[in-house]
Amino acid sequence: MRSLPRVSPVAGATVLHCDDLAVATYTHRTDRPDRAAMPVASVTGAARPYLHPVRTLGGVTVTELRPSDHPHHLGVSMAVPDVAGTTFPGVNFWGGRTYVRDLGPVELDNHGTQEHTGWLLRDPDGCVQELSWSRRGRELLRERRTISALALTDRAWALDFTSALTNVSGEDLSVGSPATNGRPGAGYGGFFWRAPRPGPDEPAPDVFTGAAAGEEAVHGRSADWLVLAGRDWSLLFCGGNTETRADPWFVRTTEYPGVGSSLAWERRLPLPAGGTTARRVVTVVADGRLDRPAAAALARRAVTA
């Protein structure tokens, strides 16, 4: 195993370490005055914190930031395309265009911002953060986000990502997706990991669960864990609580490599005034390619660690 490069502190960012190795950089500030340095420019909207780069213990980068095919994809983030109350379409915390029923994807001025408001804990191996989800000064949601890095083996570590969203808008809200707005199969929204596109001579990553394999077989289905495996890396996504394990996985391998846990696959997720919904995804970041037995064993270990 080669040592990862030491990462210098960056304003507005937190470097996560696993033992003595820097394994991820978390850009948590979205309110910096330098537009070029902000997580997302206004043209793609939905400024939000993100993790990038995320690396294996062997030094392989397994995230991608602002790729040309989807410039609003930001490494690992919590991204929701539609938070609505009495007004439709809702606020877009995903970025890019908004899918409108009977119209399709439309460029709208409806982007929201996730703003870091404070730390409850900030250590080299993790943090507990509070964020405000707002649109033009109106706060809709408050989030408590917990992110931590945990060593598992000499070839794998786990990124534990928990998000608890509380409706503070004063009215009932709901979370939607392009699927709930009329685009079949596009139920994305929630935890999302954009993986790196393979090289020109490499095949698309493989994807499998304990019971199925291939994008068509796993996309839109629930599973306790799911593996996305590139040429020399594997990402093992595990549902860390009951609600997350019930959510279908949103999976792409051929168009681009990415995996998300869907909050609103077929129907909108209601968020009553004052209510809270929480999701936990534990991702094992591994060198090499995992098979099913190894993935199942690591999933059990990662979720209970």
Rank of each mutant, 00 (worst) to 15 (best):
M1T: 12
S3L: 14
L4K: 05
R6H: 15
P9W: 03
P9V: 02
G12C: 07
V15E: 09
D20E: 14
A22Y: 09
V23E: 10
Y26P: 13
R29L: 13
R35Q: 12
G45R: 01
P53A: 12
V60P: 05
T61I: 13
E64Y: 02
E64G: 13
L65D: 12
R66S: 14
S68Q: 12
P71N: 11
H72L: 01
H72T: 02
H73E: 02
G75Q: 01
G75A: 04
G75C: 08
A79I: 06
D82T: 09
V83W: 08
G85I: 07
V91R: 10
W94V: 12
T98C: 07
Y99W: 15
R101G: 11
L103A: 15
G104F: 02
P105V: 04
H111S: 13
H111G: 11
Q114W: 10
E115I: 02
G118C: 04
W119S: 14
P124W: 00
C127T: 15
V128I: 12
V128M: 03
L131I: 12
S132M: 00
W133S: 08
R142F: 04
E143M: 01
R145Q: 11
S148E: 11
A151L: 09
A151E: 14
D154G: 05
A158C: 13
L159R: 06
T166C: 08
N167I: 08
V168S: 03
G170V: 06
G170H: 09
S174E: 15
S177L: 04
S177C: 02
S177I: 06
T180C: 06
G187D: 07
Y188M: 01
Y188T: 06
Y188E: 08
G189D: 01
R194V: 03
A195M: 03
R197K: 10
P200F: 00
P203F: 00
P205E: 02
A211L: 08
A212Q: 09
G214S: 07
E215N: 10
E215D: 07
E215R: 05
E216I: 11
V218E: 05
R221L: 14
R221C: 10
S222W: 02
D224Q: 15
A229N: 00
A229V: 00
R231T: 08
S234M: 04
S234H: 07
S234Y: 03
F237M: 10
G240L: 00
G240D: 12
E243L: 09
T244C: 04
R245F: 00
V251I: 11
P257R: 02
G258D: 00
V259R: 04
G260R: 00
L263E: 13
W265N: 14
E266K: 09
L269A: 13
P270R: 03
P270Y: 06
G274L: 07
G274S: 05
R280F: 02
V282I: 12
V284Q: 08
A286V: 04
A286K: 01
D287V: 03
G288R: 01
G288W: 03
R289V: 10
P293S: 05
A294R: 14
A295E: 05
R300W: 06
R301P: 01
R301K: 01
V303Q: 09
A305G: 13
